[in-house]
Design a binder for these strands. Structure first.
Length: 282
DNA sequence: CTCCGTGCCTGTGAGC
DNA sequence: TGCTCACAGGCACGGA
């Protein structure tokens, strides 16, 4: 499932070749992804527009169009973009096609139909994002004191719930959350407000480290993620705990646990990531 | 305000 | 072996 590193990889590729191209036609095969608007509405607002830039905000992709509109795409679980000629051939999971000037096609493929397209005016999108999305862990969190301030907003949340909530930090999903907590030796059940200053620093460094490493590896290909050229990522080879329950912890050898936390399957080492809060070690 | 549960989907794989 | 069915998960939304 695409999280920040996958969306960042896709953004870099798309922004490297789409700006300057014009959308000359569209086809939509699943109206449910259009947020109540019709395929004709979308076609009318997209056709003839030049793509100026492709950017990322959290896990959202934003296509900036000439004229001021922004096409926002969320890939959710299985959404993916492919260059038709160089990526994969079309199949029954293609939900949208953009026909571009010059004869190329950009395909949106989404097995589970969770992905969404929305059209925004920039000001509306900016103010909406302000309330639904927290800072980006790579773009906005440079300063430790700011990270501490962000943590301080939700002292009662457990770490897992905190990191998954896009209002706190934008871009983390289930995989990178578990991996970051493992690297920081912190329990997913630990409450944010109980972290020592060195815990907070470890957490910030672990988050940025896994996300940067994820980007360098071209993402994690667990639910068949591929970039627009059809290339898988390789970060799955570096996962320490995610979906490794019952395997030995790479750090201490104890069995990795799986437990539902904040409604999600959560993988962690109960020894390395001992919950000091619950165990009374604080 | 916050927390929790549900719906949206379909491929996968555990279990009978 | 072949089948069924719970499960996976991000986010929006509704109810407590």
């Amino acid at each position: 499932m695409p999280e920040l590193p996958e969306v960042e990889s896709i953004t870099r590729i798309l922004n490297g070749c789409l700006p300057g191209k014009t959308i000359i036609g569209t086809k939509f095969f699943f109206a449910g992804m259009l947020g109540g608007q019709t395929a004709d509405d979308f076609a009318g607002q997209l056709c003839g527009k030049q793509i100026m830039a492709v950017k990322r905000r959290g896990k959202y992709l934003h296509f900036y169009l000439a004229g001021g509109k922004i096409l926002e795409v969320h890939l959710r679980m299985t959404g993916a973009f492919f260059f038709f000629s160089e990526g994969r051939p079309a199949d029954q999971y293609i939900r949208a096609i953009f026909f571009l000037g010059g004869g190329s096609e950009l395909h949106f493929r989404d097995i589970r139909k969770f992905g969404t397209f929305r059209l925004w005016d920039k000001e509306v999108l900016d103010s909406f994002n302000q309330q639904r999305l927290g800072p980006d862990p790579l773009e906005d969190i440079g300063d430790f004191h700011f990270f501490q301030e962000v943590l301080g907003r939700k002292p009662q949340s457990c770490l897992k719930a905190f990191l998954l909530d896009q209002k706190n930090l934008a871009g983390m999903g289930n995989i990178y959350t578990d991996e970051a907590l493992f690297r920081a030796c912190l329990s997913p059940l630990r409450r944010v407000g109980t972290l020592s200053e060195s815990d907070q620093l470890s957490l910030m460094q672990a988050i940025q480290e896994v996300l940067r490493e994820g980007i360098t590896c071209g993402g994690v290909s667990v639910s068949n993620y591929e970039d627009p050229y059809g290339r898988p990522g390789s970060f799955q080879d570096r996962l320490m705990v995610y979906r490794r329950d019952k395997e030995p912890c790479p750090r201490c050898g104890h069995k990795i646990s799986r437990q539902v936390v904040a409604g999600r399957g959560t993988y962690f080492c109960p020894v390395c990531q001992l919950d000091k809060e619950v165990s009374g070690y604080n």
